[in-house]
Write a protein that binds this DNA or RNA. Structure first.
Length: 925
DNA sequence: TAGATCACG
DNA sequence: GACGTACGTGATCTAC
């Protein structure tokens, strides 16, 4: 083998250090030396070398702070603070770590890591090697070309020409020119004032390059821009010198010396032991990726041992805020009067900055024993209102901290707190959410409520809400809880949240789930919070008249049913109804329920429609009662008194597959399948002058099946825009498309759905009303025609048996612990789940990715202040827009939705979105 | 509080 | 080879 590299991997080590230091909770080895950055860098490098095929590797670091750029511009990176005290002692240990991993450690006085990377990259590329630069630093993007690409380890994403184009609006060869104009506040590169990346890209595209632009600056039409460019031309040229990487450094280590060496396991293990990295030791010694469950960090005191502060004046609050600023991370929890976030009134806030250290800030407590409202007579001699800060004053102090981009706010289900605080005019950003981290790590294994997570990870049972507020009828609101009890409960919640974060957050990195969390879950929080606060307008008059109409018809039907039955009984009682229909009237009872009672469900009653007139009446009664109680009546109660709109709450951990669920009220199950039910959607309206827009993915799950199972005929049918169920029928039953009957198509449609659900002959037979043997024959023929589907199912189930989980195409994990259950019923069920979950979950990931991108896309289209995203119904998004903006909004949103799998995923089938508009949801869908 | 039923994707 | 079945949700009502 020759010494010329085939594939050179250049790792931007400095970036890794900072990333690890700030992302991981503090850790110390036995002698007290902090080790969190060491741990993070070691773990990341270990991941990296396990997955690359590179034959040459270097980990490259910045030397000391001064370099040639400071001679050009003394302020370069001038405002960067010194490395934090906790980080400084870790630098030499990180060097040891790199060496223990048998990787070359490269640094050079007077040069930044970026210059060394540029030099090696150019040299290797010139020699014909492929180069991968591992970094997410945009300053390195100027290097990208046919031979040099980047890998962003945080986003798990390749950065090549397209991504550079997306980021800078120009190709890699013009990145330097754009950066020279736009400047860079993080590196203190001045650029030209008033010019950002967008304008810079536009100018460079127009004039070709920086020099030409500066020469011809006087031709620019916009006066301000023209003057700025003329005045700051020299500053732009200086910026270019700062930004352009030096690719001809006389490197001390030749490329040949970067040849990858075999890992010295003993040396590595010695290093890991010295630093107490138990989890990495386990991983290196047996190669298993699950690792030990023991935490590497020493156990902090249990919450029970902690004592908490009550903050009752501005000075105390300022001290806590200063602490949060110093640490840079703070757990936040709000206490309110209601679980319903739109009705909730803020009662207090708790904060925690380190394990065991937390406070509670009461803001709206009332005298204990006094009812929160209505009790006007008993003011005088009641207990006093407890001492607490003025709410507005406290929020004014908290607001800058909660909105500070440099302070991470950690919450358990922080969407709730964000919605409540948004009601007080306070934004919460940036955020982390322990509930979501747990869901991403261990979805399917257990619930993700705080009490459960605390018992699981901290071995501590938190104070129950009912202990401080009571339960049942005598339950009081949190505002009435005495301050000492309120402090113990509320501060503990913040403390636990912080500890959970410390325990769980590092695992995202170790278990390669950072991308799912950071690109699909976390950024969705502000989007959903906004939708929930927006709500959708519901017209109560429509509901009221429907309710009256339904009420009459239900009463009439009830009379008739009682007459047919020969006695009065409660039609809504399945037990009584069963007795009447089957015992007294002698109808054929179909199934039994699992408790042994005779089932009266609609699929039992439906076939009996013709057996007796009472059956149809019962079915109608059922339908109308359902519609009245669950929809028309209940929905009127849910109209918010102040907004006149209905505000649902989305639960992000509600469905194992990654789908959202909707509660209070559930707006994801508003009727549509029957004419009567569909009418309820007429009550969901746009305000006058606006329209509702509904956009939904067409057949997204079936498209995903065609993709993952590689079913060529279906892929082709989707590409050709054919009726997919008819095309399936044609393939499976051999009927030419021209001769297709609705019955054959119906059967094919049922099989297609069956495939998504993990088909069984019994289930299919039930669904389409044929004998089980016939259903089995259909399935056999389907598998015969589309062998890919069999293979997909077998492989998926096999993978699940081995790992206890399945994955979506975006890497979301869905755990299915019962897959190896000895009970065959539970096991079969788990197998069907494992077939369905990747499909349903990938579809959920796709629409979430779309939702995250939509606010930005609307802003770019100049629509963001007028077009509002209101609802998500699994494969559908509902918006409200002024009448004149609907067309532009549809074009913008449709493009985002149809492209939402990109660039991470290149589907073999197109994603198609269908759109409609109208004055009501009934018209729009 | 569990079970049955039925609304949705 | 038996087990008893389509996947994922939430709200309402009855009956215990």
């Amino acid at each position: 083998m020759s010494e010329t590299p085939q594939h050179l991997y250049l790792v931007d080590g400095s970036a890794y250090i900072f990333r690890a230091f700030f992302a991981l909770p503090p850790m110390n080895r036995e002698d007290g030396t902090p080790t969190n950055a060491v741990f993070g860098v070691t773990s990341m490098l270990l991941n990296l070398i396990e997955r690359t095929d590179a034959d040459h590797v270097a980990v490259i670091f910045d030397a000391k702070r001064q370099n040639f750029r400071n001679d050009i511009y003394p302020d370069y990176k001038g405002h960067r603070p010194d490395a934090p005290e906790e980080l400084r002692p870790q630098f030499p240990i990180i060097r040891e770590a790199v060496e223990a991993l048998s990787l070359p450690y490269v640094e050079m006085e007077g040069f930044e890591a970026d210059d060394l990377i540029a030099t090696y990259a150019k040299q290797a590329a010139a020699a014909g090697a492929e180069v991968t630069v591992v970094s997410s630093d945009k300053d390195l993007m100027q290097l990208v070309d046919d031979h040099i690409s980047m890998w962003d380890p945080m986003k798990n994403q390749v950065i090549s020409y397209d991504q550079v184009m997306e980021k800078f609006g120009v190709g890699p060869d013009k990145v330097v020119d754009v950066q020279s104009l736009a400047g860079d506040s993080t590196d203190n590169v001045p650029g030209v004032p008033g010019i950002g990346i967008k304008t810079a890209a536009q100018l460079i595209n127009e004039y070709g390059d920086l020099d030409t632009l500066l020469e011809r600056a006087s031709e620019i039409k916009q006066p301000k821009r023209r003057e700025s460019l003329i005045e700051f031309a020299e500053q732009a040229r200086i910026s270019r010198q700062l930004v352009r990487l030096k690719d001809d450094v006389a490197v001390e280590v030749p490329i040949a010396d970067l040849k990858r060496r075999a890992m010295d396991k003993d040396r590595l293990l010695t290093f890991l032991k010295e630093n107490g990295f138990k989890r990495l030791i386990a991983r290196v010694s047996d190669g298993s990726e699950t690792g030990a469950s023991a935490s590497d960090a020493p156990a902090p005191p249990k919450p029970a041992d902690a004592s908490y502060d009550l903050v009752q004046d501005a000075d105390a609050l300022k001290a806590w805020i200063a602490l949060a600023e110093k640490v840079g991370t703070v757990a936040v929890d709000t206490e309110t009067t209601s679980l319903n976030q739109m009705q909730a009134e803020l009662v207090g806030v708790s904060l925690s900055v380190e394990a065991g250290k937390a406070c509670y800030i009461p803001l709206a407590h009332v005298a204990p024993g006094s009812a929160g409202d209505g009790d006007l007579l008993s003011t005088g001699d009641d207990a006093e209102v407890p001492k607490q800060m003025d709410k507005a004053e406290a929020l004014a102090l908290l607001k800058p901290m909660l909105e500070d981009p440099g302070i991470l706010k950690i919450g358990q289900n922080i969407k709730y707190d964000a919605v409540v605080l948004a009601g007080e005019g306070v934004a919460v950003t940036p955020i982390d959410d322990t509930m979501l981290i747990s869901f991403v790590l261990e979805g399917g294994m257990h619930g993700h409520g705080m009490d459960e997570l605390s018992e699981l990870h901290l071995d501590h049972k938190p104070i129950a809400f009912s202990e401080v507020a009571g339960k049942g009828k005598s339950q009081i609101t949190f505002a009435e809880v005495p301050l000492d009890k309120a402090r113990d409960y509320a501060a503990e919640d913040a403390d636990i949240t912080l500890r959970l974060w410390q325990a769980l957050k590092p695992r995202l990195l170790e278990e390669k789930l950072v991308t799912v969390y950071e690109t699909i879950e976390r950024p969705l929080v502000p989007v959903l919070a906004m939708m929930e606060r927006e709500g959708i307008k519901v017209d109560p008059t429509v509901l009221r008249s429907m309710s009256t109409d339904f009420g009459k018809r239900i009463a009439d039907l009830e009379t008739e049913i009682h007459k047919e039955a020969g006695r009065n009984f409660n039609v809504g009682s399945p037990k009584q109804l069963g007795e009447v229909l089957f015992d007294e009237m002698g109808l054929d009872s179909g199934r039994k329920t699992k408790t042994g009672a005779q089932s009266t469900s609609s699929d039992v009653l439906e076939p009996l429609r013709d057996a007796h007139p009472i059956v149809a009446k019962v079915l109608d009664w059922r339908m109308l009662s359902k519609l009245k109680s669950t929809y028309t009546d209940a929905l009127m109660e849910d109209i918010h008194p102040r907004t006149g709109r209905v505000h649902t709450s989305y639960m992000m951990t509600g469905a194992q597959t990654g789908r959202l669920s909707s509660t209070d009220p559930n707006l994801q199950n508003i009727p549509i399948r029957t004419e009567e039910g569909r009418a309820i959607r007429k009550a969901f309206v746009a305000p006058s002058g606006s329209k509702l827009i509904s956009l939904d993915y067409s057949q997204i799950e079936l498209r995903l099946v065609a993709h993952v199972a590689g079913i060529e005929p279906l892929i082709q049918a989707f590409r050709d825009g054919q009726d997919i169920h008819a095309a399936t029928a044609s393939e499976v039953f051999g009927v030419p498309m021209a001769d297709m009957t609705s019955d054959v198509r119906r059967k094919a449609k049922a099989i297609n759905f069956g495939i998504i659900y993990g088909i069984s002959a019994f289930g299919l037979a039930n669904q389409i009303g044929v004998a089980r043997g016939e259903a089995q024959a259909f399935i056999d023929r389907y598998f015969e025609r589309f062998p890919g589907i069999r293979a997909y199912m077998d492989e998926t189930v096999e993978y699940c048996r081995k790992h206890g989980r399945v994955e979506t195409l975006f890497g979301r994990r869905i755990h299915i612990p019962t897959i190896n259950d000895k009970n065959p019923m539970r096991r079969n069920y788990a197998e069907r789940q494992s077939i369905n979950a990747p499909i349903q979950g990938t579809a959920a990931d796709i629409i979430k990715r779309a939702m995250i991108r939509i606010p930005k896309a609307l802003e770019d289209a100049g629509l963001s202040d007028r077009v509002k995203m209101l609802l998500q119904v699994h494969d559908e998004l509902v918006f409200e827009a002024p009448e004149g903006d609907t067309e532009a909004a549809i074009a913008c949103i449709k493009a985002v939705m149809e492209g939402a799998a990109q660039p991470l995923l290149d589907l073999k089938v197109p994603l198609i979105v269908e759109a409609g508009t109208g004055d009501s949801w009934a018209e729009a869908h």
